[in-house]
Design a protein around this nucleic acid. Sequence first.
DNA 1: GCGATTTTGTGAATGCCTTCACAAGGGCGT
DNA 2: ACGCCCTTGTGAAGGCATTCACAAAATCGC
Lengths: 266, 266
Amino acid sequence: MIAQPDPLNAVGEDADQRSVTATDQRAIPEATVARLATYLRALIGMGELGVATVSSESLAAAAGVNSAKLRKDLSYLGSYGVRGVGYDVSVLTEQIHKTLGLHQNRAVALIGLGHLGQALAGYAGFASRGFRIAALIDAHPALVGTRLRGLTVQHVDQLDEVVKRENIAIAVVAVPASAAQDVCDRLVAAGVTSILNFAPTVLTVPPHVDVRKVDLAAELQILSFHDNRKAGRADCLPLSAQQVGGQPLSAESLRAKPIRKVAVVP
Amino acid sequence: MIAQPDPLNAVGEDADQRSVTATDQRAIPEATVARLATYLRALIGMGELGVATVSSESLAAAAGVNSAKLRKDLSYLGSYGVRGVGYDVSVLTEQIHKTLGLHQNRAVALIGLGHLGQALAGYAGFASRGFRIAALIDAHPALVGTRLRGLTVQHVDQLDEVVKRENIAIAVVAVPASAAQDVCDRLVAAGVTSILNFAPTVLTVPPHVDVRKVDLAAELQILSFHDNRKAGRADCLPLSAQQVGGQPLSAESLRAKPIRKVAVVP
DNA sequence: GCGATTTTGTGAATGCCTTCACAAGGGCGT
DNA sequence: ACGCCCTTGTGAAGGCATTCACAAAATCGC
């Protein structure tokens, strides 16, 4: 298994208001938070199997990490283990659940009901893991008004209204790349503070909004890189001074076709 | 935007054969590889817009990273910039393309054609970014034999044969969690060396195989955590000594219901 | 009771990644 | 031809994250 540190779009500019929280019982590192979800899933599985207590060794194996890391991760939540015994599955499950803020069954909006959007709408994993899809939104007239999974598809123009009515803080964006920034802006304007983006584009948001990106093609490309290396191919050598493009790369061409900067909203 | 270091299933056990490659022109860090895909997309977009040259500053903005990081990342590929000018878009595009091993239009197998699998099958981003879906595989009798996107769906029993015939090194697993490990084992046996896993489960593979995981619910849970913190809720306090489960957590209960370890194939 | 055994929780060490800051390089105007 | 200005490429510093290794805690057997 590969390392997967995945800073696909890691901006890292603002991981600092970490210490100004109500419950500041030692700030939890980003890397740990990302793994808590995995631990939670493993714990729930064990709970269903009737396992009452689990050692860091077993849980780590189930989650695919090493046990020292797991113990350190859990230590950020407090001391929930018993030395010589292990962790109580139900207590730990509950604690991670709370830490992740899942005890309030959060309402989520799903924007974009193309193939991927429809697949996400039907994904049972959301419901079973603490999230309730509370709104389906699309721009396509043929879709608006149809019912899907017990919800009526709303037009994107009603986004603001729907988000406020349902008190939605988290949105999933599954629209084409060309529409993503616009949808994102509307979401932010409506008060959404967390966005999961499936569109292959970089979203620009104000600092109080979190964006996580899932880029399917990028994941494959990362695998491709490692596969390539494993195969030991020698055809990815540097080009040296060998001319590839047309004209010989001068600052003149830079002025002629000015670089279009992607807007960075502050 | 949030940091997203995403070690969802980071094992990190085996990120070491990094230096034993044919083209060992300075090993490229994992974190850099993960960003190259983003740079590539931005570059392709610029190329289509007719931009010929781009500075690290502009490209960094388009990719959502800071410019020092971008320059350091690109420096691992070699020296493709011109001081005082910037990078030639087409040269750099080509170089990243090669580095990621995308010049050979890799064949990919897609296993599992439920909602998500069908969405992935139709995802244009794969084709346009260097991958060709060469096989569709499912276990459901009603699906096997049907045609989808120009391909006939094969039964999972033919997996080995198909993978070998099409010379497939990369597979996308979109089957239910309960079937994922079995499918994974078959893929590995057939010679697949890279797996992109959408099933919410930890896959155990031999060391020469890379697995990357996309866990949709986990992504939402991470967002939920941050959202929770932003909201400053105080209801995720530690439990202290407060009893939650049934009996008072003794080693006796551990022996009574022995912990089921998840098999770790070496 | 008490020592053997198990397993947690955590300081310390190590390594990776990011960020800073600036020297070196290259074109451009005059 | 020369000096100015811009931008790259990269040592060095700093910050996180992972791993190590062990003391502390708790149970169990006798």
